[in-house]
Simulated assay, not measured.
Amino acid sequence: MNNVMTAAVLTRFGGTEALELHHDWLRPRPQDHQVLVKVTAAAVNNTDIWTRQGAHGLPEDPTAQAGWLGSFDFPRIQGGDITGIVVEVGHGVTEELSSRRVLVDPAIYGCESENASPVGYLGSEADGGFAQYVAVDVTHAHDVLDSPLSDEQLACLPVAFGTAIGILERANVRGGETVLVTGASGGVGRGC
């Protein structure tokens, strides 16, 4: 496997001119408990646009240019919505995952708890899927081999699903309750 890849790299905050296409970007290597995913589809969502623009602001200055969690490291490969094929596994990962079609959970969690909140996202606090390859924790690569959806359709789900589930959790929705979803044509509405 080649040690370089093609990647769309964000070099600074701004418009689309802040993105540079590189054909010689160093390909990531899977670390312990990670898999290397060959990206087959990556969707663009509002988080990607707002991060590129630095539009998230800071608690003390909402107009400041900042990433999702504040300070932001450049260069960065954006893209949190990723579908692909596992092409390499890191130490501690079984080979049976090789060649699996996966959907990537873009959230970076601060601990292993089932109820952990995200402390970052691929494409913001870590490199994402606007490249040929991305390395992710094995627990974030979900087998979708049997899904009838195309890779492009699947790639539209992860970030919107995270937003939708967060809304339901914040509202403390429980079984048997009814939820009205307005604007159900968008990704968040579909995630609910």
Rank of each mutant, 00 (worst) to 15 (best):
V173A: 13
D32M: 11
V9D: 10
T182E: 01
T47V: 14
G176F: 06
G120C: 08
R174S: 13
W50V: 11
I85Q: 13
F74L: 12
N46I: 01
V136A: 04
D61M: 03
A135R: 06
Y109L: 15
E95S: 14
G54A: 08
A184V: 02
P118G: 02
N3K: 14
W68G: 00
M1W: 03
L97M: 10
V179L: 08
L19V: 15
G189R: 02
F13S: 08
E20N: 09
I167T: 06
V159P: 00
L168I: 08
D73R: 11
N115H: 11
F130G: 02
Y133C: 05
G175N: 05
A66M: 07
C156P: 00
D143L: 07
F72A: 06
G176L: 10
I77E: 11
N115S: 13
R100M: 10
M5A: 05
T51C: 07
V44I: 15
V188H: 02
P59M: 02
A55E: 04
F130I: 02
P28H: 07
D48T: 08
N172Y: 00
H23D: 15
A8K: 12
C111P: 00
A66P: 05
L149F: 14
R27P: 00
G189T: 01
T16V: 13
I165P: 00
Q34M: 13
V35F: 08
L149A: 12
Y121A: 08
C111Q: 09
H33G: 05
E17T: 10
I165F: 08
P59R: 01
V93R: 05
T83L: 03
T51N: 09
L19G: 07
M1I: 06
Q65V: 04
G123W: 07
T182Q: 11
T139P: 00
E177A: 09
W50S: 07
I82H: 12
Q34K: 06
T139L: 04
T6M: 12
V144G: 05
S99Q: 08
R170I: 02
C192A: 15
R174G: 01
V104K: 05
A41I: 11
V37D: 01
Q53M: 15
V89K: 00
C156D: 03
G186T: 01
Y109N: 03
P59W: 05
Y121L: 15
L149H: 14
G162D: 02
R170E: 06
A41K: 12
G14I: 12
G175T: 13
A55R: 09
Q153D: 14
R29A: 15
A160G: 11
E96M: 01
G79M: 11
P118M: 10
Q65N: 07
A155T: 06
